[in-house]
Write a protein that binds this DNA or RNA. Structure first.
Length: 671
RNA sequence: GCGCCCGUAGCUCAAUGGAUAGAGCGUUGCCCUCCGAAGGCAAAGGCUACUGGUUCGAGCCCAGUCGGGCGCACCA
């Protein structure tokens, strides 16, 4: 089988730890410590291992041969062996904000999470297609249309003439519509009417709806572009309707008997999907390693755990764990009036993503000056030539949606299982995440009334208790800008703006990623604006300072390239690593060497926060090393030392820049 | 009622079933005639909510209890 390798609690115990004696002890029936003592000497002769100690109750701790280790430096630091391109394709859908109002912090968490996961997948060699789903025919859009048409009495031309932050404008209007509905129950009928018109795709109301949705989508894309978030394809709900995806899915569901027509009971006259053990596992994928994608789908057999053994025959705990059998539950897919539910449409859409529907969209270029990469959109009009094969289907589909949607996601998975089999269902992944709530202090600051009992305040778009994404970015930029101003008053305005933007993005992305997905984030303005400690700016600053060291010695007349060459040619690093100074940098090298593993873990466990912690560790190790005045590059005692130190700094800059890019964190030129 | 998630330092969070439970913030001391102090060093701070169990070993697994949050619609 495979051998489990762990890290030691402290570096002076060793570079790696093997707990295998414990495993063997179970099988042979001898004391772990004895086994370890026998094995250790044998391991010590393996190439690349300098020493093998026995510690604790039976750990074998390995010390790496540091000079041998440096032979591989150039490969792991600069041209990290990116795993070759993989077969098949992965779809990640994120953002998917209702196109009726501005994006808020909850959406920002979604998009940053999704975008970072895409980056990590790509770093692992996956061919990833990023999608943003646009529900342009939902009630939320209808509500805003009611606002424009009835409350404000605006024509399409007048709405077009609305200037400025259109998504903010609709934000207020949307809230207003809700109050307006409340005043008179009859008014709610207008919502249904508008919705119907939008779905019909006819008349001025539909036209207005299309305009509003499109304009707000542009606003969302611009907001996300500020955070280095982009997409390959926008999929519009209206196109799903017009391409009759549902009709096709309905046939498939009936053919496979996945859904049944009810002739009695509560769901009389409806088509329902049976939710029982046969077509879904009950455990939610969020936190259950059991349902993680199999190794061949994700992370090439990286599960170091050699197998599953809950020890056959030995009763676990208070008794054998029986699979939970729930009463069968039925989920209505088609209502008694013949209309399809949202979940039904979602099944159709998911089947398309997996290439199992047998239908495809038409595609057009989505022209947008704020985005760098080519962006496409589904369309029911004329297709543009040159579209990538979006409809080819993916073997793995990650849907980034909040955990509140776990149940509907489970239903979709069940539908997929019934129509396309267990493999397709297994490839349907819900990348769930918890919500973002406001801390009491921040809620008060924003002028909300706060219940003194609770610790936080729920963020709800509908109730308006939120921070808008653009406002948040602006607040971060302003803070960063003033920080720069106090540190460096001479800086030009343009320079400051640029750096402030990068710092704001780094701070926000790091903040949203550092928590595990199933952790509710209590958003506190003070905390999010922090630039010290475990933050994005800490990471950025480490690189900026490292680069400024290189710039400085260059300015002092030293030739950096020549110094690097000298260090390489004379193999100075390996002898240096044995010196006390080298030892103090050893943790930095070890940390950098673990980057590939960190990315693999982040992908396999579907947990990007692994990567922020990893980045922090590297930065911390570098700070710890270079902070020591005795390690100065500029005033190095001799050229050999100087060239080694330059090499260390240079390796760190390259490596950390790479790591930061996987997190979407930009490194400013100066801070 | 059923299901899921959370409970770890004053606060915010980590910890593939492994060693003395770690970080950041905050607090208290130090360190810029030293390549950028958005930094570094150090100290104080813990019955991992509680009770049992499984295991050589439990913050983690199992059963239960108590708190907190969220889902369970012919809404989207």
């Amino acid at each position: 089988g495979e051998i489990l390798v762990q890290t030691t609690p402290k570096l002076d115990l060793g570079d790696m730890a093997l707990p295998l004696a414990f495993e063997l002890a179970k099988k042979i029936g001898r004391k772990p410590r004895e086994i370890a003592q026998e094995l250790a000497p044998k391991l010590a002769v393996v190439e690349g291992i300098a020493r093998a100690d026995v510690a604790g109750g039976g750990f074998i701790n390995l010390f790496l041969d540091r000079s041998a280790f440096t032979k591989h430096l150039s490969t792991f630091v600069t041209t990290r062996p990116a795993p070759g391109p993989r077969d098949g394709r992965v779809i990640v859908e994120h953002t998917s904000i209702n196109p009726n109002k501005a994006a808020h912090i909850g959406h920002v968490r979604n998009s940053i999470l999704g975008d970072t996961f895409v980056r990590l997948l790509r770093a692992r060699g996956y061919n990833v297609l990023t999608q943003n789903y646009i529900d342009d025919t939902g009630v939320q859009v209808a509500d805003v249309i009611v606002g424009f048409e009835t409350i404000e009495n605006k024509s399409l031309a007048e709405v077009r003439a609305v200037e400025g932050h259109f998504d903010y404008y609709c934000w207020d209007l949307y809230a207003q519509v809700f109050e307006w509905y409340g005043e008179d129950k009859e008014r709610k009928a207008l919502q249904a009417k508008a919705l119907h018109a939008i779905e019909k795709h006819e008349g001025p109301t539909a036209e207005l709806g299309e305009y509003v949705a499109a304009r707000i989508v542009r606003a969302h894309i611009a907001t996300m572009a500020r955070l280095n978030i982009g997409y390959d394809l926008l999929v519009r709900e209206s196109d799903i309707l017009r391409q009759h995806f549902w009709a096709k899915a309905f046939d498939l569901l009936k053919e496979t008997k996945a859904i049944e027509f009810q002739t009695e009971g509560k769901a009389n006259g409806c088509w329902v999907l049976r939710m029982d053990r046969g077509n879904t596992d009950r455990s939610d994928s969020e936190s259950s390693p059991q349902t993680a994608p199999p190794a061949d789908l994700l992370g090439e057999g990286a599960s170091t755990k050699d197998a599953t053994d809950p020890k056959p025959g030995s009763p676990r705990g208070g008794g054998a764990v029986a699979p939970r059998i729930q009463d069968d539950e039925n989920k209505i897919i088609v209502r008694s009036n013949g209309t399809v539910t949202y979940t039904g449409k979602d099944i159709a859409y998911q089947l398309w993503k997996l290439g199992k529907l047998g239908l495809d969209f038409r595609y057009r270029r989505h022209e947008d000056s704020t985005v760098a990469r080519p962006l496409w959109s589904s369309t029911s009009g004329d297709a543009d030539p040159g579209a990538p094969p979006f409809g080819a289907g993916a073997s793995l589909v990650f849907n980034v949606i909040d955990v509140g949607q776990s149940y509907p996601q489970r239903v979709v998975k069940a539908g997929v299982a019934a129509v396309a089999g267990p493999e397709a269902a297994e490839g349907t992944r819900h990348l769930g995440y918890e919500k973002v709530v406001l801390s009491k202090a921040t809620a008060k600051e924003l002028g909300y009334e706060v219940d003194e009992d609770g610790g936080s305040v729920k963020v709800s778009g509908r109730r308006g208790l939120v921070v808008k994404a653009d406002d948040l970015i602006e607040a971060l930029k302003a803070k960063a800008s003033s920080e720069i101003a106090t540190r460096d008053p001479e800086r030009s305005q343009a320079d400051r703006e640029k750096a402030a933007h990068d710092i704001a993005v780094g701070a926000l992305r790091y903040f949203m990623l550092r928590f595990s997905r199933n952790r509710i984030i209590t958003f506190d303005m003070e905390e999010a604006l922090a630039f010290t400690g475990e933050t994005g700016p800490y990471i950025q600053n480490s690189v900026v300072r490292a680069r400024s060291i290189l710039a400085k010695i260059s300015a002092e007349g030293h030739d950096v390239a020549a110094l690097l060459k000298r260090a390489h040619d004379q193999g100075l690093l390996s002898t240096w690593l044995a010196t006390p100074e080298g030892s103090s940098a050893w943790s930095l090298f070890l940390a950098m060497a673990r980057t590939e593993e960190a990315i693999e873990t982040a992908v396999r466990t579907e947990e990007p926060s692994v990567m922020t912690r990893h980045a922090f560790q590297i930065a911390q190790a570098f700070h710890g090393y270079y902070q020591n005045p005795a390690h100065t590059v500029l005033r190095a005692e001799n050229e050999d030392l100087r060239s080694v130190r330059v090499l260390v700094v240079d390796l760190f800059v390259k490596h950390m820049t790479d790591v930061a890019s996987h997190l979407g964190i930009p490194i400013p030129d100066r801070m």
